[in-house]
Each structure stands twice: as C-alpha cells, then as structure tokens.
C-alpha cells in the first residue's frame, strides 16, 4: 500500500523525467566537448607533438566512459539529494508525513519504503545514464576497442586495452557498482533530510556538503583525510575497466561505501523514528 502510493507520487511528481532531461542535456554538452577536444588533439591544433591521443583513441566507448564518470560523480548525487530531500523533509514540511502517520503503520516501515523508492530511482537513473551515453557514443562516434592510458581520469596505472566486448561487459558491471557508489551520497542526504525543516533546505545542505566532501577527497592536500570520506571511494567502479580486474580492490571500496551507507541510514532511521511531527 505504502509502496504503491510512493511510486504513484513519484510518477506524478515528474522528477524522474526532469532528471532524464537533465542527463540528456549533460550528455549533449559532453558530446560537443568531446568532438571539439578530439579535433584539437588529433588535428593541427595539438601543441604537443608526441602524444598517445589519436583518432582511434577517441571513440564512442571512450566518450561513454568519460560521460559516465562525470555523471556519476557530479550529476547523479544531486538527483539523489533531491529525492531524499523531497521524500523526507518535503513530506514532513507539507504535512503529508503526519497524514500517513494517522494510519496504523510504523515509522520504520514508512522510512524503509521511502528508501526503496529512492534506491529504485537511483538505480534507474544510473542505468539511464549508462544506456544513453553508450547509445549516443554508438550513434554519433561509433564504438571500438577501449584504450585507457595512465593518468587519464586516474583510471589506470598501466595502459589497458579492452576489446569492445570486454568493455561492454565492464559497463554492464559498472551499473550495480555505480548504484552502490550512489547509495552513499543518497544515505547521507537521507540523514540530512531527517534533520532539515523543509525540502529546499535539505537539498541545499546535502548538495553543498557533498561538494565540499568531494573537493576534499580530490585535492592532494587532504590525502590523509581520504580514508574517512565516502567521496574518496565514489568512483571505485573504475577498477572494473581493467584487462584483469582486481576484485579485492573492488570489494574493499564497495564495502567501504556500504559501511558509510549503513551508518548514515541507521542514524537517519533513529532520527526519523524519534523526531516530532508537528
């Protein structure tokens, strides 16, 4: 009953549609940037004569990987924060939550169903980002083998050459892996939403806090802090794009993210169960 209601409300809110629209816009801009960059680097504009970048390097799979990388780290966490803020703080501010609680249903149950809706939405959006980026890469650039060079997006320490089928399998595995990585910012946003007074505050605080943590994890100055930040493991799914996948590393980073997620969710549930709904 709660689940049906929540999914119905999600559909009527058109938030997933808006998110898909934003993803398509992002991918369009990425495609434009990819074209112009590839032309500069492989044409007469290259100022460095000796380079690994050539026309076969810039193919549809490289585009998909670049787009997926930035989408997962910078775009999808914003949608996750929006969903959490709307589902919890938004419902609380509008009085919907109080209305739901007039029925004989536990708060934990409401929380868990809302979490299910958020998780499903996140997994759906990760899948959409992956499907759209691969499709656009195929239509506008064309697939091929995937070459990853050391240093580029910190994808690999050694040159990796993946055949097209190996790369597509890696993309497929990246779907659940990236969904797990999105679970951490989602849970973080859920925790903030249980404390916020309304949806706008919750989304604003979540997005800003995520960006601060992301920047801290990226900047070399703060490398000692990295083990304590969930944002430093967010792109762990890159490990899947290897000739020989280091599964130990994949599981370690995945477990780190799941650990943070469970911790945030436990704290969020505690707060959700015990706070006053006025």
């Amino acid at each position: 009953m709660i689940a049906r209601l929540e999914f119905l409300r999600l559909r009527r809110s058109r938030r997933p549609l808006l998110a898909i629209g934003a993803l398509l816009f992002f991918l369009g801009m990425m495609l434009l940037g990819f074209y112009t960059y590839a032309q500069t680097e492989t044409g007469g504009g290259a100022s460095f004569r000796y380079t690994f970048e050539n026309s076969s390097y810039f193919n549809g799979l490289t585009f998909s990987l670049y787009a997926f990388y930035f989408g997962c780290l910078l775009i999808l966490p914003i949608f996750a924060a929006t969903e959490a803020g709307t589902q919890l703080a938004g419902d609380s501010a509008s009085g919907r939550l109080r209305l739901m609680l007039t029925r004989p249903v536990s708060r934990s149950r409401i929380f868990l169903w809302k979490l299910c809706v958020m998780l499903s939405t996140s997994a759906f959006l990760v899948g959409c980002l992956l499907a759209f980026s691969l499709s656009l890469g195929l239509i506008f650039v064309g697939w091929g083998d995937l070459d990853l060079y050391p240093g580029v997006l910190q994808m690999s320490a050694r040159h990796q050459h993946l055949t097209q089928s190996q790369a597509l399998l890696a993309f497929l595995l990246a779907w659940p892996a990236a969904t797990i990585s999105l679970l951490a910012p989602l849970s973080f946003s859920v925790l903030i939403a249980t404390w916020a007074k309304n949806g706008v505050n919750a989304v604003g605080i979540s997005v800003s806090a995520y960006l601060v943590l992301y920047v801290l994890a990226e900047i070399h100055f703060f490398k000692e802090l990295r083990p304590w930040l969930f944002t430093s493991s967010m792109s762990y799914w890159r490990e899947l794009f290897r000739e020989e996948v280091n599964w130990g590393e994949v599981f370690e980073q995945g477990a780190r993210l799941l650990g943070f997620s469970c911790l945030f969710l436990a704290l969020a549930l505690r707060r959700f169960r015990t706070r006053e709904e006025l």
Binding site: V105, S106, R107, S108, R109, L112, F251, E252, A255, R256, L258, G259, F260, S261, C262, L263, L265, A266, L269, R270, R273
Partner: peptide, 22 residues
C-alpha cells in the same frame, strides 16, 4: 512504533562488518 531499534542495530552491525572487512 516498535521494529525500528532492531533495524537500526542491523544497519550498525552491517556498517561495522563492512568497515572491519576494509
């Protein structure tokens, strides 16, 4: 309403297990 503390405990336990593995 009851049930919540049990779930919280389970989530904390899962978090502890994940961090121990790491």
């Amino acid at each position: 309403v009851g049930g919540g503390p049990g779930i919280e405990l389970l989530l904390l336990l899962a978090a502890a297990l994940c961090f121990c593995f790491v």
